[in-house]
């Protein structure tokens, strides 16, 4: 096991090309649990937490580009939250302040846990993920990168470089159910993005399927059913139907964190709550 601290993206790509079996290490919050507890013994580690090209975030015309090593704490920043509130809210629910100072957006993506909290906002925002290697760069949708629980489609020599999301005019919500409020892994999450210009709602669900899912039927239904000119929250029957359609998009399982039935119920409740908040 060797450890290299990479200083540039080019160096990361070169190291990976020379040794595709090397493990990438960013915040370490999943990696080190596996080393400490599960006997993970990678032959070679490339630390990418201080690669300048992977750090920070930038605003381009209508979009926000985030480096893969952007931490949850950086996503919580009010300046960032002003552009991508659902992602900032999601980041705020992850772990503890200590974990949020270390864990990264790229790590959440590559780990590809069904419970990854940044994933539903990225799904709702139709995020584009740029990955690179010495062979070049390519851009992926979230559902092209994450294809199963802890399964990503990165080639062995590829590294996630950045994630780009549009700046959308309208409120956003991220809601999460866990067994308590702090330091908790999600039982179920929803991310809801209201697009004022298009008069549409985007709804994504987390922890209730093998991968993050979009509740497209709920989205299509509410676009027609919502009274877009009313300042009042939607009527009870509209909320109920929206919640039902959201829950129908979930395919949850029973596991040590919760039951399938409770997860479905929680999705319906959170979808209604998020819709009420953004439409009033």
């Amino acid at each position: 096991m060797s450890v290299r601290v990479a200083e540039s993206l080019e160096e990361v790509c070169d190291l990976l090309a020379a040794n595709p079996s090397a493990s990438l290490l960013a915040g370490g919050t999943d990696f080190m649990v596996e080393v400490n507890y599960s006997g993970r013994r990678p032959a070679s580690v490339i630390a990418i937490d201080r690669v300048p090209e992977l750090s920070g975030w930038r605003r381009h015309n209508g979009s926000i580009e985030m480096g893969a090593a952007l931490t949850y704490a950086e996503m919580e920043h009010p300046l960032f939250a002003a552009y991508v509130p659902a992602l900032a809210q999601a980041a705020r629910t992850v772990g503890s302040p200590q974990i949020r100072n270390a864990g990264t957006l790229g790590g959440n993506l590559a780990t590809a846990s069904p419970a990854g909290d940044t994933l539903p906002p990225l799904a709702a925002l139709d995020a584009r993920i740029t990955v690179c290697s010495v062979r070049g760069t390519r851009e992926l949708r979230l559902d092209e990168l994450i294809v199963g629980p802890k399964q990503n489609t990165l080639a062995a020599d590829e590294v996630i470089r950045s994630v780009t999301v549009p700046v959308i005019d309208g409120p956003q919500e991220f809601l999460k159910v866990g067994t308590r409020n702090a330091m908790v892994i999600s039982v179920a999450t929803v991310a809801l993005v209201l697009d004022r210009a298009r008069r549409s709602v985007r709804l994504a669900l987390g922890s209730v399927a093998p991968v993050p899912v979009r509740a497209t039927e709920a989205e299509e239904w509410i676009a027609d059913a919502a009274d877009w000119d009313s300042p009042e929250p939607p009527a009870g029957d509209v909320l109920a139907r929206f919640g039902e359609l959201a829950a129908a998009a979930a395919s949850p399982i029973d596991d040590h964190r919760s039951t399938s039935a409770y997860r479905r119920h929680a999705v319906a409740v959170m979808a209604r709550r998020a819709l009420t908040r953004v439409l009033s």
Binding site: V3, G28, T29, M32, V33, Y37, Q98, N101, A102
Partner: peptide
């Protein structure tokens, strides 16, 4: 495993769990 904070140190000025840092 990053749950308890007993191992908190400052790394470049930020509190982190030293058990989660290689």
């Amino acid at each position: 495993q990053g749950e308890c904070g007993s191992c908190t140190v400052l790394a470049d000025g930020l509190p982190v769990c030293s058990c989660m840092m290689l």
